[in-house]
Structure formats: C-alpha cells, structure tokens
Design a protein around this nucleic acid. Structure first.
Length: 561
RNA sequence: AGCCUGGUGGUGUAAUGGUAGCACAGGAGUUUUUGGUACUCUCAGUCGGGGUUCGAAUCCCUGCCGGGCUGCCA
C-alpha cells in the first residue's frame, strides 16, 4: 500500500487523527481495530472498514488489531471466525499477534459490572421484555423507572452472581445501568448490559451463563486494547454517549469513537441479513456465490485483493449516505487486471471456419503475446490449422456500415495468425449459418503483410485440433434495479432479483493452455473479458471459467441504443 | 411525532470565508494486431428562501428533502 501523499486532502477521519497526532493526544500514538462479529461472512462493506482501519494504522505508523466481537453466542460460530481471518489475509492485511476477542475480557467486564453496582450505578432488573418496553417509553414520551431500580447493593451483587451461575431462566433478569429514563436518546434509558444466556460460547465454553451486551463490551474492549480511535458506521452514533459514559464512569482509557457512512453498492445487497436469505432460500449458490458481494464470492468470481483495496480507496469517506455505482468496482478490477492478467484466446459461441487454400493436414505453431502491457511476460505457442473456430457474433451476412469484423468478401486478421477473407457461407436446412469458407494470405503469417496493408478488424479464434471445451459462466447483476429495497407494497427485495444473473455456456472453446491454470489465477480471454477458473469446480476435477468482468465494449454500447 | 444526523454534476468525493477541483459514468476524437489499453477534448454541480460580509458550498435564520433511533442484536 502506498503512503498517502502529504498535501493531498484528507478525509474527515484522517483530519481528526492527524490533528490528534500533532497535539500529542495519546502521546501521538494511533491504534485502530477491525471488530467483526463472527456470525457471518465478510463482505465489501467490511472491506471498506478494513482498509480504513488498517490503512490509517499504516499511514500514521500505528497498529491495527483484529478483534472478534463475540458477545452473543447465539449466532456466532468458530467457522465464521476462521473464514473472517482467511478473507482478511487474502485481502492482504496482517494483525501480527494482535488477534483479540471481546470474550477475552469477560472476567474484567464482570468485575466492572460489580464496580458499577457498588457505585449505585447498576441494578438487577426483573422486568420482562414486554414490561421493559412499556417502561422505556417511546420516541416522544419519556420512560419511567423500573421498580427494581433501587435494590440494595448487596442484593444486586447476590443476584448477579446467581445469574452468572445459571440459577435463573433466560429472559427473567437483566443487569441494567442506571442512567436516565427521560433521555431523548433511548439508548440511555437504563440500557441492559448483561443478559442471561444458557449457551455454549465458542471461546469460553459453558463458563458463563450471562453475556455482556455490545454497549458494555465494545468500548471497554477498545479501552483495554489501548485503541485510540474507534471507527464504526453511522448507526452507532446514538451509542456514542453510552460508550463515553462507560469509559468515564469506569475511569478507564477513553478512545474516541468516530462514525462514518457505510458502503452501499447499487444492484446488490450488502447486509448480512439479506445475504443470509439469498443463501438460505437458494437464490444463490452459497455465501461464496460469484454474484455475491461477499469477499469469498468476489474472490471466486476473480476479483483481486488489490482491485478491492483500490475500490475502497476510491469510494471515499464521509458521513452522508451513499450508493456507489457498480461501474466503479468494475473499473477497479479492469484497471488492475489489464496490467497483470495474461491473455488467452477463446470463443463463446463457436462458428467453424475452413480455410480452403490452407494445406489439409498442416498444423503450425504461432506466437501469441501473453500480455501487451508487460513485455517481460513473453509469448506462448498456439496451434493453427485448416479448420478454426471464430465467435459467431464476429460474422455478419448483412453488416452495418462500421462493422469491422468478418463478412463475405471482407478481409480480417485472425489475431497472431493470418489475414483471411470469407468466400462463402454454408447454412443448414433451417438457414442457420454453420460454416464459413475462407481463403488466407500466406504472406500475412503472424498478422502482418510485407505490403503493410491495413485490415480494420482483428478477431480471436481457436484451433480445432487442440481447443478444449470448458463450461463458461457469465454473471450479471443480482438485482434488476439499482436499489433492491425499493419495492411495491407487500413485496420485499427478493421481488427485484434478476432471474438472468447467471448464464452457463456449454459450447465454448478455448485454447488448451487454459487447463494448466490454477483456480483464482486471473486471465483475459481476448475481446471477451477477464476470467478465472472456478475453485469449487476445480476441486471436483471440472474445468469451469467464471467471467469476472467483461471488457469495456464501446461498439456494443453504441449499437444497443 | 420527539431526538440525532446529513444534503456539492448522473454517482462518489475535495475545497474549512477568497479561482467550485478530482475520479467513475456519459459524449467526441487520436493511436492501436483486443471496437481493449493509452492519450486528448467534452458534458454536467453547491436543496430552496432570507441574512451577515468587499467576498458564502463554507457563518446565521428558516423551510424542504434523505438517513438513524422505541432488541435482553451488533
């Protein structure tokens, strides 16, 4: 990652941090953290937070921790914790030996709860869910104090200890903190800081029967880890007064919470809840479906870590709600892959071309450039013979004016091979074109002629004697509309699903060298797009190509209007 | 409804009282053995209304619009 250049304008968070460093707040130290809850897979929205937290740490010579925010064992699993670390490493970030869990602090949090009780600032409450809701008041009306609010310190301690031991049923008691039932901020109306949960925890097993809430664990974990700037998304804004309240009343190191707007991408969904529905109801192939905005899905689709980091850098950072256009993501991928991906030849919809003046049994090896953007990658051999295949849409019987590709009587270049001219079109009984009879110019070997004559069209092809036939999957946006949440009365986001988001091609032909590639390794099929081999298919011994993103196509764009 | 928060081209983001800039998208062109890439040019914006000021995207007032909050989720 490159350093932020001095003099470049900083976003509002970096501005705050840089001022703090200048004023020697926290002794000029910068320490951030990325704190996912291990209850699902990481997605692009997390990537924004990851790049922010790790990026800032690096730019300010600080540190960034990974913390698993595991305060609620009902949905959290070790499997997720592992996947999170894998995705993070894949993205290219390193937390060294600083992997922490909120659960590492359960004992300390418990002691702090006792301290709050002794300070008359916390109490055990017997109100049920329903009662508590009634007592809380509403957005416009104040709440009223719980009848249990003034229990004796000793009784509170006794009750909390028994809650901890598991003497009470779930939902029968909570530990609440005594703040202000009249506060306009509902989070301050005596929030619950411990609830009873008779549940195994992935880290602490059955040791605890009570678990701290997010509000009671997050700021304190930040504090214990020596975090200086606690960056989170906007919906935690109303929790900041609570965050501050705990640090102040516990008298502990007080990190600064700063909120930023979360990332939204059009034509997709970015919440765990909605993604979970897509997975559970079978609308996609799993969390790592290549159409999903999860990091695992994007990895399988063929996104590179650096393209995602570049994207996160470009989306900017502010407090206003935003919906980023998919085009920016695609741009970042193409920008990266154009420079790094090797080129290969393939045709999605093969059309046979017989070169009538090419010797029957001759097969020759031609040189093809691996990457014109990087000459050091050299060339490879591709075979050529009398019978090759081109893409069906590279031929037209009645071409429009500026059509540069093949048509009867027109000369085109087969890339890296020869100039050919179509003489004749062969059709089946239904009138479908099944073969083109062409003649080649032996002088044009390699794609150029001694007389330097120009051909406007250059098309890709594959040789019939060596081509292989993998399955090719093309992906489109998952939803038909930019904002899937915009729905008619009575419908939900699933009604906006794009039923054509996956297209599988079975007839495609590609050059043989592709079977030697590793899953995940990006390559370009010239003029078609960037691809990678599907991981899951490769594990099963099948060759499946996922298209990561199509090439920009200004011709198609113009002619679709 | 109350509280909090935010409004800059189509999208996103800068400018912190002094030339409204950058990127993506869109349009036009040059180069090209990818209708790709690269390069050039171009379109397009301060939510409305008042005020303060020599000067306002920026400060004040007011209206409008968006988002968040009534979990023992995070």
């Amino acid at each position: 990652m490159e350093e932020k250049e001095l003099g470049k304008s900083l976003d509002f968070i970096r501005t705050i941090i840089s001022e703090d460093v200048t004023s020697q707040k926290n002794d000029g130290r910068v320490h951030t953290r990325f704190p996912p809850e291990p209850n699902g897979y990481l997605h692009l929205g997390h990537a924004k937070s990851i790049c922010l937290n790790f990026g800032i740490a690096e730019e300010f010579n600080g540190l960034c921790n990974l913390r698993l925010d595991d305060t609620n064992p009902s949905a959290e699993k070790a499997e997720y914790a592992l996947a999170i670390q894998g995705d993070l490493r894949w993205l290219g970030f390193d937390w060294e030996d600083r992997l922490f869990h909120a659960s590492d602090n359960f004992q300390q949090l418990y002691e702090w709860a006792i301290q709050l009780i002794k300070d008359h600032k916390a109490y055990v409450c017997d109100l049920t869910f329903e009662e508590m809701r009634e007592y809380r008041g509403t957005l416009t009306e104040p709440g009223k104090n719980s009848p249990y609010r003034n229990r004796e310190v000793s009784e509170n301690i006794d009750l909390l200890e028994r809650m901890k031991k598991g003497e009470f049923e779930e939902g029968t008691k909570t530990l609440r903190v005594k703040i202000d039932m009249n506060s306009p901020n509902l989070n301050m109306r005596d929030p619950v800081i411990y609830r009873i949960m008779h549940r195994e925890h992935p880290e602490t097993g059955d040791k605890w029967k009570i678990y701290p809430s997010y509000d009671f664990a997050h700021g304190q974990s930040d504090s214990l880890e020596g975090i200086t700037h606690s960056l989170c998304t906007l919906e935690f804004e109303h929790h900041r007064p609570l965050y501050d309240w705990f640090c102040k009343n516990l008298g502990i190191h007080h990190p600064q919470q700063i909120e930023f707007a979360r990332l939204n991408l059009n034509y997709t969904v970015m919440s765990k809840r909605k993604m979970l529905r897509l997975v559970e109801e079978g609308h996609v192939d799993g969390w790592d479906d290549p159409r999903m905005a999860t990091l695992s899905g994007m990895r399988r689709r063929g996104f590179t870590p650096s393209s995602i980091r570049s994207f996160c850098d470009k989306v900017g950072l502010a407090k206003r709600e935003n919906i980023i256009e998919m085009e920016l993501l695609e741009f970042c991928l193409r920008e990266d892959l154009n420079k790094s991906a090797h080129r290969r030849l393939g045709v999605l919809d093969p059309l046979k071309v017989t070169i009538s003046n090419y010797p029957e049994s001759k097969v020759e090896e031609l040189d093809a450039i691996n990457n014109p953007e990087d000459p050091t990658t050299g060339t490879r051999k591709v075979s050529f013979s009398r019978e090759v295949f081109i893409d069906r849409n590279d031929f037209m019987e009645d071409p429009p004016k500026k059509y540069f590709r093949m048509a009867v009587g027109k000369e085109v270049r087969l890339k890296y091979a020869y100039y050919i001219t179509c003489q004749k079109v062969i059709k089946d009984e239904d009138g479908k074109i099944i073969e083109l009879i062409c003649e080649y110019d032996p002088e044009s070997r390699g794609g150029g002629t001694p007389d330097q004559r120009k051909v406007k069209g250059t098309i890709q092809w594959v040789d019939s004697t060596t081509a292989i036939n993998p399955e090719i999957r093309l992906y489109d946006r998952l939803f038909k509309v930019p904002n899937p949440d915009e729905v008619e009365e009575g419908k939900d986001f699933l009604s906006n699903l794009n039923s054509d988001s996956l297209t599988s091609l079975s007839d495609a032909l590609v050059e043989k060298s592709i079977e030697e590639l590793q899953a995940g390794e990006p390559f370009q099929l010239e003029r078609i797009g960037y691809f990678t081999l599907d991981t899951k298919a490769q594990e099963m011994g099948k060759l499946v190509l996922n298209r990561s993103v199509a090439m920009r196509d200004s011709w198609a764009k113009k002619h679709s209007k």
